[in-house]
Amino acid sequence: MRITRVLSTTLLALGLAATPAAADSTPSASPSEDGSAPTTAGTSFRTATEVDQGRTATASGSAGDYLYWSFPADAGQRPTVTAKVKLPEEHTGQTWQVDVYDGLRRRQSCQYGAQTRTAAPGTASLELACVLRTVRAWSEPWADDPLPGTYYVRLTVVGLKTADLGLPVGAELRVDSKDIGGSAAVDGSLAEPLVPGVAVKSSADDEDDPSASAVLSSIEPDDGWSSGWWSTAGCGPGSAACWPRSPGSAGTP
């Protein structure tokens, strides 16, 4: 009796998990798994298109749309977001802006880069950039330091005349990052990267529930998240962290 039940449940689960609709609705681990870059953009945090670092995502939209992408960033990286907007042939001048949010949807500041730019009437394209702060492995909850996890990019027009509303525009987005290395390393690490829905995802994995196939963010760096147990902030030959700072700090760990 019990065996029958288990067997039938397994079969049912198999059938459910693999019917065409469900199969299609299972997001592949990451859109760029097959090496191609996405050609669409999402319209909200929830539907943001996932794009890996080092790939150029493209999207077509209309002036007035809010275009969302998300990318993974790990500790020690300093991501640079560059966006290129192809403007319609005729327009009356538009101001575009790129904003970056972290996995908690907190706005992240740009160290430098032209985050907002205005295109004069007739300009064919404009480029925006945002260099984020270095992603730290750990920070206090009261700080809004960038932490490893999902990052959201929102590209939108902020200054627009009604005549330009809805005109077709093209967008390109690319995220590259510079490895900062040990100088940015901190002690401590998060148990889970700042990926929205990570708690739901891990519990769904346990239960193997086919209905929980859609996740908020399934993003992960190519070589996985750094676990944090090995820190380059240790005692390298040139690292000042090893040496006594001053007699006053003696004994403090």
């Binding site: 750990w138 401590g188 929205p196 708690a199 820190s231 962290a241 040496w243 006594p244 760990p253």
Partner: peptide
């Protein structure tokens, strides 16, 4: 969005019980 996950591990002691730095 609500996520309850395991807590972070704070300041792992790379200095090995204090032997790695200071006096």
């Amino acid at each position: 969005t609500v996520d309850v996950v395991d807590g972070p591990s704070q300041a792992s002691d790379v200095a090995s019980f204090g032997l790695g730095r200071g006096w």
